[in-house]
Nucleic acid binder design. Structure first.
Length: 591
RNA sequence: GGUCCCGUAGUUCAAUGGAUAGAAUAGAAGUUUCCUAAACUUUAGAUGCAAGUUCGAUUCUUGCCGGGACUACCA
């Protein structure tokens, strides 16, 4: 149990008895003591001033005295400043914590609780390569899943591949028209990029065709409807749905190209899935949901045959759930898929890692699922995250302002190589070792950059300035880990010896930070927010860095101090490695 | 028009209603005979505007200004 959770009931009990009031642990506000004051944790007293009818200063003195009396082994001293009771935890508590757990590889890990969760993330379209926005999605989804696993849950990672529809037909049409049979192999390009180029080409050609039609006298609206290439794509979608063999073969071929490209990227960034669903296989599931909804009078049919749901009572709109031609719309497919997955996995909660532009969509989705009485409907959770933008605004495929994922990674690797060569600290590394190190640093920098920000918030990526390996970055934390490993290679802590008596400030700050790790993991899991863990890892590394500069480990003042610092180093190394692993970031032995 | 989100140092990000609003980076000044200087230390710099609730507001409420998303028989 964490120290904060341990002292809370003690304090609540002391207050309750002393003032004859019912105060529970949940009523207490306990913060880390600000560095400019003396203390480890601070109780905020203002909340009790009114009900107990005493001044904050007096309250603080009385509670502080009682705590020292009640738990002399736990509280060393206290001081009261304004409405804050600053508590100093006894050194012996911190030393016991360190000496019993300094080599615990499972620190922060909870036992399995049998609760099942699903995280659906990544979910790409198979008509273009992944970009920076997809990377945020992939890193967030993967990390949240791993954090929840460490928090004791059983987690399934899934992916829905948006592999059919008009957007897929667009790249197919362009390929048919202009490729002359070219393939990724014949052009030496990566499959997803190859197909993506034709998707872009489609847009360019359509723009020209529309312009020509407008020139010949058509209105903009009509021109957009009548552009020949668009009509071809629409016809192709109809053909695809009717099972046309040629179209289906082309579709299979081009999707296979894209998947071969995705596989390379996924492997490199570490994304993995327990199950991948394909829209081409699930898009008909919505039909059953529609019948169901009509039978339950949740949906209603208009004269033209289209099916709707009225959500105005819930503050939303009327939404169409099936077109008049009987085909399913996107949201209905989602309902069908949700139902199927519930039957397959039976998770109490399903996280959809999808950008916040779809907030409305998921509000509607959950409402419909609930009204239909689909099991697990209440567990539908939109893990909404903000989009990644450039300093110039939103990334747009058509305007070529998209930051490609593969290019991005490559550039980070180049910077990692350049910096590493400049520093010249790993000249004895083999080619393979260097390559691995560059990847670790490059992806560490990229993942940390995207994960350190609160997922809910939009973030700006500046290509010129965002690639940094100094300060609040992944490579800084990796560097601290390498330093720790360098010490531990020379000498590791000894199991038997008991270490330390008093704690110096830098030692204590570090140990307090270490003790918080399980609490941070738990919080990151319940709030599904990896940035809490990223910030924590940085603060821990920073605390170690200051400690390292101020005190020598291997040539400590005494054998006892050396043992203490070796243990501090070892536990810090473990927590950094474990914490970063939950973000999908590896840490090197040397760098 | 309607619904929702966001405005914090030059820049990118923090801050369960609590102490003098924290970091990083860019700026200024230092630190290496000593476990890896991708480091450490010091310094300067910010809550869009106006009211309200509160002992206390970056946080809650309202208005204004500025930015964004959604509001398709698209996915």
């Amino acid at each position: 149990m964490s120290i904060v959770n341990r002292i809370k009931p003690i304090i609540a009990d002391v207050i309750s008895r002393q003032y004859n009031q019912t105060v529970t642990a949940a009523d207490l506000t306990i913060n880390s003591t600000k560095p400019e004051f003396t203390g480890d944790y601070t109780l905020v007293l203002f909340a009790f001033v009114k009900s107990l009818k005493k001044s904050p200063e007096q309250l603080g003195q009385e509670i502080g005295d009682s705590l020292l009396k009640a738990e002399p082994a736990l509280f060393a001293s206290y001081n009261v400043i304004k409405g804050f009771l600053n508590l100093v935890i006894a050194d012996q508590f911190w030393l016991d914590f360190l000496n019993t757990g300094y080599d615990n590889q499972d620190f922060g890990k909870k036992p399995a609780d049998g609760r099942k969760k699903m995280v659906e993330y990544s979910s790409p379209n198979t008509n273009k390569p992944l970009h920076l926005g997809h990377l945020r999605n992939n890193f967030l989804g993967w990390s949240v899943a791993e954090i929840m696993k460490t928090n004791g849950h059983t987690v399934y990672k899934t992916c829905i591949s948006n592999d059919r529809g008009i957007h897929i037909c667009k790249s197919m049409v362009a390929w048919l028209r202009y490729a002359n049979g070219a393939t990724p192999a014949s052009t030496g390009s990566k499959g997803d990029h190859f197909v993506g180029d034709y998707y872009v080409m489609f847009g360019n050609v359509m723009k020209k065709e529309i312009a020509a039609l407008i020139e010949s006298g058509l209105s903009k609206e009509d021109a957009e409807k009548q552009a020949p290439i668009m009509k071809e794509a629409q016809q192709m979608l109809v053909d695809w749905e009717s099972g046309d063999e040629a179209v289906n073969n082309l579709w299979k071929t081009m999707n296979a190209w894209v998947y071969s490209g995705f596989e390379i990227t996924y492997k490199r960034i570490g994304s993995d899935f327990d199950k991948t669903y394909y829209e081409s296989q699930t898009y008909l599931l919505g039909k059953k949901a529609v019948e169901d909804g009509l039978a339950k009078n949740v949906f209603y049919k208009k004269e033209d045959g289209s099916v709707w749901i009225d959500l105005t009572a819930d503050g939303l709109d009327e939404k169409v759930v099936q077109r008049k031609d009987g085909t399913a719309v996107y949201i209905t497919q989602d309902i069908g898929l949700a139902e199927q997955r519930e039957q397959e996995f039976g998770c109490e909660q399903t996280f959809y890692v999808v950008a916040d532009e779809q907030n409305y969509h998921f509000k509607v989705l959950k409402l419909i699922a609930e009204k239909l009485g689909i099991p697990g409907a209440s567990g539908i959770t939109h893990m909404s995250y903000g989009m990644v933008e450039l300093p110039t605004g939103r990334m747009k495929t058509r305007e070529g302002t998209v930051v490609d994922a593969d290019d991005m990674i490559e550039e980070m690797v180049n910077v990692a190589r350049q910096k590493t060569e400049e520093l010249g600290k790993v000249k004895d590394f083999s080619e393979a070792e260097l390559k691995e190190l560059y990847d670790i640093i490059a992806l560490g920098a990229l993942k940390f950059f995207l994960l350190r920000v609160d997922p809910k918030k939009r973030m700006i990526f500046n290509p010129e300035e965002s690639i940094d390996f100094h300060g609040f970055t992944g490579p800084f934390i990796q560097f601290i880990h390498a330093r720790i490993k360098s010490i531990l290679r020379k000498e590791a802590p000894v199991k038997s010896a008991d270490a330390g008596s008093g704690l110096l400030p830098a030692e204590k700050s570090l140990i307090i930070k270490l003790e918080q790790y399980p609490t941070v993991v738990e919080q990151a899991a319940t709030e599904y927010n990896p940035s809490l863990l990223a910030i924590y890892c940085y603060e821990l590394a920073k605390a170690y860095s200051s400690f390292y500069t101020e005190h020598s480990v291997l040539t400590a003042e005494s054998a006892e101090k050396k043992q203490l610092r070796l243990r501090l180093s070892q536990l810090t190394g473990i927590v950094i490695a474990k914490g970063m692993a939950l973000l999908g970031i590896k840490v090197p032995e040397r760098m």
